[in-house]
Write a protein that binds this DNA or RNA. Structure first.
Lengths: 111, 111
DNA sequence: ATTTAATACCTAGCATTACTAGGTATAATA
DNA sequence: TATTATACCTAGTAATGCTAGGTATTAAAT
């Protein structure tokens, strides 16, 4: 497994919730936005993103709505739910705790 | 899956290599040290630690040596290898890159 | 006009790994 | 004597990022 793949485990949901909480977005757009905002670091694969969105929707954290463009093309826009916002806050707290613990190990001030 | 479990994916190897690179350690000691140094955050399960150590040894990043204590008790002390030290440096670089990318998403200075 | 690339969605199955739950054994403590 | 701590191990499960395949429309390049 490539390093990036492993490190991403556990942070994917937070990234997706964070983006969608700022404004409703559709899958393809999320992939592009994550790559742009991270300056090329995050390159989500479709086989990662779409199942993740479906999981989040099943869990009631986001809500998907089909939108038809001029010409008949379809996009599925995802909206954050109240529950999603609550979970996002909790996940950010967990992320900070995890970071703090990691720093205690890899950047020890004392032994 | 509990949050901690997911966040740990990808960082376990770095934590273990980091500890062992400072001084040779045995499994049980590593579990206790990680908990102590992280002020209770990391509570590695044996089913996580021992397979991880075996993986790292198979990969040539650490080397295990049995040591017999007075009384006949056995401990398996792990030593970092040259390859392990190189991989550790690389993993720390990857960790920093990952952190930077995460911060670009969750703490955006610009859109 | 035709081919290629970009957009836009989807899924089955694989690989990896943290953990549960079980095992064995010795030493120290209650 | 019973319990806890020390010290190691593994088989199987759950979770998830990805590969590799699919469908379809639109835009750009040849």
């Amino acid at each position: 497994m490539v390093p990036r793949r492993k490190l991403m485990k556990g942070s994917t949901d937070s990234l997706l919730l964070h983006l969608i909480s700022r404004q409703p977005m559709y899958g393809y757009q999320i992939i592009k936005e994550l790559e742009r905002k991270s300056r090329g670091y995050f390159k989500f694969k479709e086989g990662t993103l779409y199942p993740a969105l479906h999981r989040l929707e099943r869990a009631g954290l986001i809500l998907g709505k089909w939108q038809t463009l001029a010409g008949g093309r379809q996009r599925r826009y995802y909206y954050i739910t109240n529950k999603g916002n609550q979970i996002l806050v909790a996940k950010m707290d967990q992320w900070r705790d995890f970071l703090a613990a990691m720093n205690l190990i890899i950047e020890p001030l004392s032994t």
